[in-house]
Computed example of a mutant assay.
Amino acid sequence: MLYYALVFLVVAIIAGVLGFGGIAGASAGIAQILFFLFLALLVISVIINFVRKV
């Protein structure tokens, strides 16, 4: 999932450099959503792993 967030971030940067503002904004938004989703799943996984070991 982090891979897809990075892919959308790169697409947003390239689209922004080329002047495609709408595509850049949409790609940046998708990258942000995927990054925070990844971060939430990471935190949940760490908590579950901690609880299992105790």
Rank of each mutant, 00 (worst) to 15 (best):
G25W: 01
L9H: 11
Y3N: 12
F50R: 14
V51E: 11
I44W: 09
V17N: 07
F35R: 02
F36A: 04
V11Q: 04
R52Q: 09
I23E: 01
F36T: 05
G21A: 15
Y3Q: 12
V7P: 00
I33F: 08
L2C: 05
A12M: 01
L34C: 06
F38M: 05
L41R: 10
K53G: 06
L42Y: 06
K53T: 08
L37G: 06
I23Y: 01
I44K: 13
L37Y: 05
V51K: 11
L37H: 05
L39P: 02
L39E: 09
M1L: 10
I33P: 01
G22Y: 08
F8I: 00
A12T: 00
F8E: 01
L6Q: 12
S45F: 15
I47S: 06
I44Y: 13
V54Y: 14
L6D: 09
Y4E: 14
L34Q: 09
G16F: 00
I44D: 13
F35N: 02
L2T: 08
L42F: 05
G19K: 02
A12S: 07
F36R: 06
I14N: 00
V7S: 06
A31P: 02
F50W: 14
L9V: 07
F8G: 00
I14T: 07
L39G: 02
L6G: 10
R52L: 11
F20P: 03
I33K: 05
V54Q: 12
I13G: 03
N49C: 15
M1Y: 09
